[in-house]
Design a protein around this nucleic acid. Sequence first.
DNA 1: GAAATCCGAACGAACGTTCGAACGGAAAGT
DNA 2: ACTTTCCGTTCGAACGTTCGTTCGGATTTC
Lengths: 219, 219
Amino acid sequence: MEPKAAELHAELSRGKTARFDAKLVHLLARTARVFADQGYEKASMRKVALAAGISLPGLYHYVSSKEELLFLIQYQAFGVLTEELEVILERPAAPEGHLEEMVRSHVRYVVRHLPELKVCTTELDSLKGDNYEHVLKRRQRYFELTRSILERLREQDRGSRVEPNLGALYLFGLLNWLVMWFDPKRNDPTELSESLVAFFLGGYRVAALSGSRTEKVEK
Amino acid sequence: MEPKAAELHAELSRGKTARFDAKLVHLLARTARVFADQGYEKASMRKVALAAGISLPGLYHYVSSKEELLFLIQYQAFGVLTEELEVILERPAAPEGHLEEMVRSHVRYVVRHLPELKVCTTELDSLKGDNYEHVLKRRQRYFELTRSILERLREQDRGSRVEPNLGALYLFGLLNWLVMWFDPKRNDPTELSESLVAFFLGGYRVAALSGSRTEKVEK
DNA sequence: GAAATCCGAACGAACGTTCGAACGGAAAGT
DNA sequence: ACTTTCCGTTCGAACGTTCGTTCGGATTTC
């Protein structure tokens, strides 16, 4: 019920004691910062241990490998994002409303977990085998849920000629690039969300109305 | 005058003989593929040498370090992009026309040099010292030139409420994310360019016209 | 005192880079 | 025309470093 606990409500019962889980959450947060700053490959387990305040072998008491650290960060991030989006879509609303809430939710996650999301955006292909497959499945679900919004938007709005799939790619281009320039000190999340939604809707609805060139625009 | 030579017209006179430069260009192309596929840190000089068809110490006859490989790829890519954009902006045209040509030029570069551009997008911060500064300067110039288009677009078009700076960030979000999903077999460059321009213009002009929520849209 | 937690020391592997020698083909010498 | 010289080019072998991971035992917690 506490804000802290509610923030990370995804499954994190890897250990038996509550202390274990709490320390693991702390470890993952510090790890995400290190991975985001230096990149997954360049970041060494020694630096992670130093940032987390434990020794190098102490890390392996909480995770079995370096890749598991990366997996847990990405798996949890997409888990939270997908879960929030599912809650949003359960509430009946117009497609525009769902889109706006999706963008708000995503931007809110950017604000609170910028390192984690940067890791998700930057280190997409650093996972292998089952780790990669499981994260990919969650990413695809997040993408599909978003695409479903755009599909309903297109059904209602006959003007758009942008395919929902392409529109989703555009939208994630806008959202994922946030991690490269968003600065909590300079950008207001609410304002940015509104700007993003208005920008996307304007482009998604209007785009490709005229198939020919844009020679001269009417005033 | 040949197409091949014209394609890479930037300064590449690092060696004295023409054979040296030709082999360096070939080496950089193979290196870009390796860096794009595996990531800069994970890609080893041994893999680069193997992909380039020379031995490991043979690499160091053409470059002095691994980082110089990364630098040359990024420096040349932004050099070509900036150069092309400067040529475009020299021709008088409406802002919409300049924007369209800029996007076409960028997409054309994506098609022809996808690995290089993926490296530029993914390995922004892997350079250090002077290498980083020099590439940063070219990146900033490319950004500023693009922003200037949006500034003229806003002067002419009083409806837009998106700042040119923010608009440029949105645009590069759309363009840079291309390297993650663009497939030459599935996507037509011309069609994609037109779609991108129409999408961006629609969003850039319309965005934030209404400061309040988007509750329900009129049919 | 049993279980959970932590760490100093060290392992094998892979990394970027270097050294010195060998190769090749064209210019120079005779 | 033949040899010699020379320099751009190539590579086998190896160096020192750092990496992820492990082992055995010490320390803490309940």
